[in-house]
Design a protein around this nucleic acid. Structure first.
Lengths: 237, 237
DNA sequence: GAGTGGTCTAGACCACTTG
DNA sequence: AAGTGGTCTAGACCACTCG
């Protein structure tokens, strides 16, 4: 409802998903779109750039913008998408079990990850996710207690992000992720169903707010058969 | 030498890396930069948007743009970066061994991956990468022969991408990646040093040209201890 | 109220593709 | 030559932060 170019972007996403604009066809030209939407060409171009960034269209100089064929299920949209997010989109909701949800004094490891001074407090939340009765993902979250005053078990069971963004009004701006493979720890063995598996895939996630402060460190530890990431990336030139 | 905003972007990247602009400090305002570079504010904004997208700066409304602290070694720059790319940046160049480099008729699997008709030809290139005398990465590349007429063993040994972009003038535009963990195949066991390992990490990569045509499918198969991906991602709002 | 980044405009010139 | 997307401009108004 706010920005014109975001609204145009969203409207065009709809048209692509509803196949008003079909894959491999050309969109109307920028001048035509500017006319249709009663706006300037630069505003249309902002909308088209969003579409291109998110893998909906490919712009071709001198010709026009074509709709990229996308496999709805394999490549849901833009950017890095984890197994849990993919499962959510498919309607397979995991069962979440909260093992720990408490304010603690950060240990050395967490101090280092979150660049904290001595004895700062953090919320530690440890959860497992089960699909078809198998505990396959272990999520360990650490949030700086100065920024997040309180988290209840209920919130941990539903959605922390929803709480942070919609209740507390925090704005998450960017994240740095690292993906590696490790041997399971004793904790992994205890909390996940790892019989017959020799590795876990670990996604380390450093989350920043809109003032560029680091406020959360997360480790998401996956059983390897339930790990899958997809990514759409434009090449830099 | 080309676009003003790209030149400004590159110049500012230099200044950030040389710490003329230091982490957590504010850049000059957009108006000041427009003045300095003798250009319009919109052009400056294009440069700043590139910096923001690539994780160099964070823009804060009403305040200014601050330089994001980046761990040079852990998070080299923007987007998804693989183990091999990370190693390259560290100056640890792997030794490449070419096992196969031939034009073949696509089998069912490759036909499906590259969405080919019957009996189309592809270049099949199979290579291993060794670090410290250990063969840890197996790269299997398939390129549509209509687009790429010829590839020599020499090219496969050095850089295919350099050849495609600089010699053939192909423009690679975007890619879809999928990362999963599998049990090693017999081929993996034969070509990699996998003693004591039970998994390989597989990165499937679908590469598209600037006219949005799919022209390459790659599988990069990593020994799990030599797999590492890092990613910088902005959150969509 | 002064300064910041965010959006939007109307117009210009360019490089590229196609008939 | 006409149409396309790519760049650039100079100016406008807005929402936000901070003293």
């Amino acid at each position: 409802m706010r920005n014109k170019y975001v609204m145009i972007y969203q409207e065009m996403v709809q048209k692509i998903e509803k196949e008003t604009f079909k894959a491999n066809e050309f969109l109307p030209s920028e001048n035509e779109l500017a006319e249709q939407y009663q706006t300037s060409r630069e505003t249309i171009r902002k909308a088209l750039n969003l579409l291109a960034q998110n893998g909906y269209i490919q712009k071709i100089r001198g010709k026009g913008s074509t709709v990229i064929e996308r496999n709805k299920f394999d490549f849901p949209v833009s950017g890095l998408v984890s197994f849990k997010e993919l499962a959510d989109k498919m309607g397979e909701r995991p069962i979440t079990t909260v093992h720990q949800c408490a304010k603690i004094s950060a240990n050395d490891f967490i101090q280092h990850q979150l660049k904290l001074k001595n004895n700062q407090e953090v919320w530690e939340i440890i959860r497992t996710r089960s699909f078809s009765e198998q505990r396959v993902i272990l999520d360990k979250d650490y949030l700086i207690a100065n920024t997040v005053q309180h988290i209840s078990r209920d919130i941990a069971e539903t959605s922390i992000y929803d709480y942070l963004e919609n209740q507390l009004g925090l704005i998450i701006s960017f994240a740095k992720k690292e993906i590696i493979v490790e041997e399971p720890t004793e904790e992994d063995r205890a909390l996940l169903d790892l019989e017959g598996f020799y590795n876990v895939v670990v996604i380390k996630n450093y989350v920043y707010l809109d003032d560029a402060t680091l406020f959360q460190y997360t480790e998401s530890r996956h059983r390897p058969d339930k790990f899958r990431f997809v990514d759409f990336a434009r090449r830099e030139h």
